[in-house]
Design a protein around this nucleic acid. Structure first.
Length: 230
DNA sequence: ATCCAGAACCGCGGTGCCAT
DNA sequence: ATGGCACCGCGGTTCTGGAT
């Protein structure tokens, strides 16, 4: 795994952030995530040991406020920052450069998401036409019940479930919504999906991790539908 | 030694359900 | 309508272990 901060750099940057004002650990994680446009957020297992270490060295101290530890820099910590001012400045310029690259990447991801939506829309239209020409008897569209990312930890990949196995019936979601004409209901759901995803993609109110996950989800969904409808 | 991810734990507030 | 209760999600933290 590649490290974002080199040896001792994260420690220095934490000092710099605390020099701007007292913050609790979780706030520091969010702040770093924000500065890296959401593409990098140090884990708790990184931040808290670092803060504990800084405190042991006397560079920061903490106050317990409402059950949280609010860390603030000490005079010794400020002295270290002054002493390593050049290093702090170069670190900040490196971060600015990284963020610029990330902003460029974010633009590419946006294009990818829009392209995926377009492809998905075309494939679903073709599938709808096909189903109208000769819709099979019995419960329509088995396997449509994907469940999305695993809830809970928020960690790991997109976590698509494999969905129902062949022969299993989908009793939730789709079947609850479908009307008498499965093809018409399919069209309605398709239109709803495309409209909503397009609106979300154009709103710009999303983070880069969300975009990455959305792109993966769209590719995954498209692959699943290809397999299903071929 | 340091960076890092992820699981697990704890506490708190919000929410839904049920009995009154 | 209201009070009590259980459940759930989230914020915050600690711990463990792998990678460099």
């Amino acid at each position: 795994m590649t490290t974002v901060f080199g040896h001792g750099r994260l420690r220095l940057y934490l000092l710099k952030l605390l020099d701007d004002g007292p913050r609790h650990g979780y706030e520091l994680i969010r702040l770093l995530e924000e500065r890296f446009l959401g593409l990098y957020a140090p884990s708790a297992g990184t931040i808290y040991p670092r803060l504990a270490r800084l405190e042991a060295e006397g560079l920061v101290t903490h106050d317990a406020v409402g059950g949280r530890k609010v860390y603030r820099i000490t005079e010794a910590g400020r002295a270290e920052l002054r002493q390593r001012a050049d290093e702090v400045a170069s670190l900040e310029s490196e971060i600015r450069a990284s963020v610029s690259d990330l902003a460029k990447l974010a633009g590419e991801i946006r294009s990818e998401v829009r392209g995926s939506v377009r492809d998905l829309k075309q494939e679903l239209r073709a599938a709808a036409r096909e189903s109208r020409r000769g819709s099979p008897p019995g419960p329509a569209y088995p396997g449509a019940g994907f469940s999305g990312p695993a809830a809970g930890s928020g960690s790991g990949g997109p976590g698509w479930s494999a969905g129902p196995r062949a022969g299993e019936r989908v009793e939730q979601g789709w079947s609850a919504a479908q009307g008498d004409d499965p093809a018409a209901e399919f069209d309605r759901q398709l239109l709803l999906f495309v409209t909503e995803v397009r609106a979300l993609a154009r709103s710009g109110r999303f983070t880069e991790p969300q975009l990455r996950t959305a792109a993966r989800l769209l590719h995954g969904a498209l692959d699943g539908l290809r397999r299903l409808l071929r």
